[in-house]
Design a protein around this nucleic acid. Structure first.
Length: 278
RNA sequence: GCACCGGUCGGAUAGCGGCUAUUCCAGGUGACUGUAAAUCACCCGCCUUCGGGCAUCGUUGGUUCGAGUCCAACCCGGUGCA
């Protein structure tokens, strides 16, 4: 089985630079696993790697869609699997890099998503209902799913109703055995160091012109509502707010990663011996 | 010194005689089926055999069947007048 390197971890741990270093060493190509770096024009706010930092290493799944449109995990999965195959065909090593745990799992665990695209009309209609009403609706459509769903989570309820409406029920969760051997490397920083790095990173973001980037997005037709969806950096950001939210986000990322016992963790503030896993 | 206002969880805040002291933030734990930097749940005084038990609204007294809430004195902070 072909090897695929996965580099994951909280935001601001230095994944991107580390990945380039490895790619150089093992003849690799990088596939981003970031739910927002797929959008064109979201550069500063998402901490997207700059062209020259790539040092000639091809990066896949960056800038693949206009931010006016919504990208979903199913599309990500498809494109990422395709990219892996292409890289392998070239006899190079795919290196998945990112902090979006959901996206990473979609590839490494082979999650099979129900083939039901978002239905904006339905979503709009039922989003007016409160949680109770949504639950009742789902119970009517699919009793089983209604039993194990988070009944307070409107987003999930709406999605479940969407699937059940299209398919008659929500298929139970299945995964497809992956065709590759994934080697998962986690980069972490002690919390005080992480906070310091986040602080620095956010300050730099503003210096580099985050407000200008937002202005540009607006000018190109991205609505205020859409900007809000694109993350806290893109909606009336202040340095303090972005720092605070980023710290909280980093904690949520860790909650996700902690479940995965296959991850080998390395302290990013110390030199890492690459031979350990290559 | 006098007068007024205030002192409630780490911070902010509600509570104006009645049962279980509210909400927000911060913090902790966790969930995750096409929005995932999203969305959501639980905990957040102490002890617990997870049934519950015991505390607690600046302090000390008092009134009352019952006090964070009313009264008195004191302590602390703010504002005004001297």
């Amino acid at each position: 089985m072909k090897k695929v390197i996965v580099i994951l971890g909280q935001t601001a741990t230095g994944k991107s630079a580390f990945a380039v270093k490895i790619a150089k060493k093992i003849n690799g190509e990088i596939i981003s696993a970031d739910s927002r770096q797929v959008y064109k024009g979201l550069d500063i706010g998402t901490g997207k790697i700059a062209r020259k930092e790539m040092r000639g290493i091809p990066h896949h799944l960056l800038d693949v869609i206009n931010p006016k449109h919504k990208f979903t995990i199913a599309e990500y999965q498809k494109k990422a699997i395709y990219a892996i195959a292409e890289i392998v065909k070239k006899e190079r090593v795919p290196i998945i890099v990112g902090g979006t745990g959901f996206y990473i799992d979609a590839i490494t665990k082979g999650t099979v998503f129900p083939k039901v695209p978002p239905n904006p009309k339905l979503r709009k209609n039922i989003s007016k209902l409160d949680g109770r009403q949504l639950l009742m609706l789902l119970q009517k459509l699919d009793k089983k799913r209604a039993q194990n769903i988070d009944i307070h989570n409107k987003v999930r309820l709406i999605r479940a109703i969407e699937i059940a409406t299209a398919l008659g029920k929500v298929p139970s969760l299945i995964t497809k055995k992956p065709k590759y051997k994934f080697i998962k490397i986690g980069l972490f920083l002690p919390s005080n160091k992480l906070e310091k790095k986040i602080r620095l990173r956010v300050k730099k973001m503003f210096k580099k012109g985050l407000p200008k980037e937002i202005k540009k997005l607006k000018k190109s037709g991205v609505s205020g509502k859409r900007l809000k969806e694109l993350g806290f950096e893109y909606f009336e950001p202040t340095e303090e707010k972005v720092i605070k939210e980023t710290v909280k986000y980093a904690k949520r990322q860790m909650t996700w990663f902690k479940r995965d016992k296959e991850i080998k963790w390395f302290d990013a503030s110390k030199p890492i011996n690459l031979k350990l896993f290559l």
